[in-house]
């Protein structure tokens, strides 16, 4: 940053007027995002608690529903998301070291991986419509699918798929919001808005992205790996 003209540096420090210095601003940003993640934990927590109750009540139905999901797709998506967390972490690192090119590349890589995840998810959703196992919209399982679901009771299987769509759907919405934030970072990053002194937005979005990733780490076993079929 030493080659940047002094007046530019003053304008582009990114210090908001309400803060005394960048350190105070950065600490506030980090506390803010951690608090926000706590609210997210409570948000998903309510859903996970409800899931836990019904899985305990209707284990057979949940097991049957789980066996219809394609574990290969779920596992592949897990790898993709973990990869995106790596590239996200590398983006933050690049921002800290002031490597603008690497920052933008890693951010775009993260977006691509996020896009792959959403694509696979969309394919899986479509599969559910093909198999007529979308509760409330298209529920008429037949053939092999029916054979999987019948032992646990078709009504309770609907509950399982309700959770499947509610949980993965909310997760996907968080992914989409995350992609929007990444895009914003790419645009700002290309303009050189982030410096080794001011990179809090990258880190904040990074924490959010890792959180969304962790939610999936819980969703994958809870939805795909029930009942030890392997």
């Amino acid at each position: 940053m030493s080659d940047a003209p002094a007046h530019l540096e003053a304008e582009h420090t990114g210090l908001a007027h309400q803060f005394e210095d960048l350190e105070q601003q950065q600490e506030s940003d980090f506390l803010g995002i951690w608090l926000f993640l706590v609210t997210e934990i409570m948000f998903f927590g309510g859903l996970f608690a409800a899931y836990a109750i019904y899985r305990w009540l209707y284990f057979a139905a949940f097991e049957g529903g789980s066996h219809i999901l394609d574990i290969r797709l779920g596992a592949a998506n897990t790898v993709v998301l973990l990869g995106s967390s790596l590239t996200m972490a590398l983006s933050v690192r690049s921002a800290q070291t002031g490597n603008r090119r690497a920052l933008v590349y890693f951010l775009i890589a993260t977006m691509i991986l996020g896009g792959v995840f959403l694509g696979v998810k969309a394919y899986e959703y479509n599969q559910k419509f093909v198999e007529h196992i979308v509760p409330g919209l298209d529920w008429a399982p037949e053939g092999e699918v029916l054979a999987h679901l019948a032992p646990g009771g078709l009504q309770h299987a609907q509950l399982y798929f309700f959770f499947y769509f509610a949980m993965t759907g909310l997760h996907a919405i968080h992914m989409v919001i995350g992609m929007g934030l990444l895009l914003w970072l790419v645009i700002r990053g290309r303009k050189g808005a982030f410096t080794p002194h001011y990179f809090a937005p990258v880190e904040v979005v990074g924490l959010y992205w890792h959180f969304v990733d962790i939610v999936w780490i819980f969703l994958f076993p809870l939805l795909y790996l029930i009942g030890g079929r392997y």
């Binding site: 209707y58 057979a60 019948a150 646990g152 009771g153």
Partner: peptide, 11 residues
């Protein structure tokens, strides 16, 4: 339990 067995016998 009796009620559940009537309405959701597979539970």
């Amino acid at each position: 339990y009796m009620r559940e067995s009537l309405l959701a016998p597979r539970a």
